[in-house]
Design a protein around this nucleic acid. Structure first.
Lengths: 189, 189
DNA sequence: ATGAACTTTCAAAAGATTTTGAAGGTGCAG
DNA sequence: CTGCACCTTCAAAATCTTTTGAAAGTTCAT
């Protein structure tokens, strides 16, 4: 950013940066910009509202990048702006209820796509039905209908899944300290 | 690709292209290249093995792009190479069991990331525990532990979800024709 | 009203990803 | 063995995304 000063993270924040990178990767993997995950994590770990400048320092980001990230995180409802009485500058804090975050993001993110995908697949079915004499058209229409059914089933199922989790965990407060069963995991990068 | 020939899709494949774009968007949204979704969709709708060249024509892709897409789709186990006896060229067909596809992709895709994320968060906790005198270190360690628990819980839950769906639907054969309940949807893009 | 302390915006630069197409396989028929 | 038809590779080019930093905008204290 300026003149080759070692990224100086011997200020007691190495651990946070490691965690921030890890969560940044997760978030990127789920289709967001990595920096959003990093910023959110810094706020989450801090456990108290921080001003934009502090975030920029810890993550070595320009003021502009921090500002944009915070704006976007607020749009997703996972970071809140906090006004401290008697303070000029603004503070930001992380939402801490994970399932609330996830369902909100899910809602926002998927609704439009799901609708547009449904509409387009329906259109494709209609088009294929309109020319039943085209060789294979009926078979192809079948395939597209199947795609459509699957999209709807998956959508409904996922939605139910997220809903049910929210209910499962909220009784424990917004803290999830119990890995319940840590068994058969899966997945990768 | 060559000389401004109208993308000529009056060959009876407009509907497939519309569906392919729709699924391409879904796939892109889930973190893959859009072209992978488009290629898979063409194969899926065709309902019979197609040679690479046909895919390229329908989607107006260069031979190179088709080849790379097919290779990648095979890596993910969602497209298979089919040798037709007595035919020189190779054919490709789409896997049609959606849940099988999803769980396979899930496995492949998440396992490494999940492991690396767990390791990094554990490291962060250890680092914070190592300097208990640093102001706030204990509180921060707590936050990181929480993140870690959540990652594990979410991982396990999602895994179970995918597993259970597979069981739910496989009895119906590889065709999902019953939207069972088409109710409360959600999501967007 | 002025200016200090911050924040936001946005166009340009940097960086990353995707696509292309030409060169180089591969395998088979003749 | 040669030529044809097809497939794969890969470096360069095109395209898309992200980051930067300077300028403009806010907000408040004085």
């Amino acid at each position: 950013m300026s003149e080759r000063e070692t990224p100086r993270q011997d200020d007691g924040h190495e651990a946070e940066l490691i965690a921030a990178e890890a969560i940044g990767d997760v978030i990127e993997h789920w289709g967001f910009r990595r920096v959003l995950g990093r910023v959110w994590t810094i706020l989450f770990i801090a456990a108290e509202p921080l001003p934009a400048a502090v975030i920029g320092e810890r993550l070595s980001l320009s003021a502009g990048a921090v500002s944009m990230s915070l704006t976007e995180l607020q749009r997703w409802g996972v970071v809140r702006r906090v006004f401290k009485p008697g303070e000029r500058k603004e503070y930001f804090e992380a939402e801490t209820d994970f399932w609330k975050m996830i369902s909100k993001v899910f809602d926002e993110r998927e609704r439009l796509l799901a609708e547009s995908v449904r509409a387009r697949l329906e259109r494709a079915v209609t088009m294929l039905e309109a020319r039943p004499r085209l060789p294979g058209a009926e078979q192809r229409a079948d395939r597209v209908r199947r795609l459509l059914s699957f999209v709807i089933v998956a959508e409904t199922a996922l939605d139910g899944f997220i809903r049910s989790r929210r209910v499962d965990f909220s009784p424990f407060g917004d803290l999830i300290r119990f890995p319940l069963r840590v068994a058969t995991r899966k997945r990768r990068a």
